[in-house]
């Protein structure tokens, strides 16, 4: 799967289901959790989404701010396991 496809899919999910502001102008490197856009508990939603959409399982202790604070990091994490 292309990087751009993964990015678009994740961007749509983050805006609609995590931030819940579909019109928000999210930068790829914008901090989601440390920037206060979402709380770290909502990473459970992200974990289940990438499991079902991409077949990528991210262990619970890896659903962290350090690993998944930006859209760039999320895309990289999914692509790492898709490779």
């Amino acid at each position: 799967m292309e990087r751009s496809q993964v990015r678009d899919t994740l961007r749509t999910f983050v805006l609609n289901d995590m931030i819940r502001l579909p019109t928000y102008d999210l930068r790829d490197d914008e901090p989601l959790i440390t920037g206060g856009l979402v709380d770290s508990f909502s990473l459970a939603l992200f974990g289940v989404f990438v499991e079902e959409r991409f077949g990528v399982y991210i262990p619970d202790p890896d659903l962290t701010v350090e690993n998944l604070d930006t859209l760039d990091q999320m895309v990289a994490r999914v692509l790492r396991d898709l490779a």
Binding site: F41, L43, A44, G47, V48, E51, D60, P61, L63, T64
Partner: peptide, 9 residues
């Protein structure tokens, strides 16, 4: 990480 995420997921 060890209670909320496993339950929620």
């Amino acid at each position: 990480d060890y209670i909320y995420f496993p339950t929620s997921r």
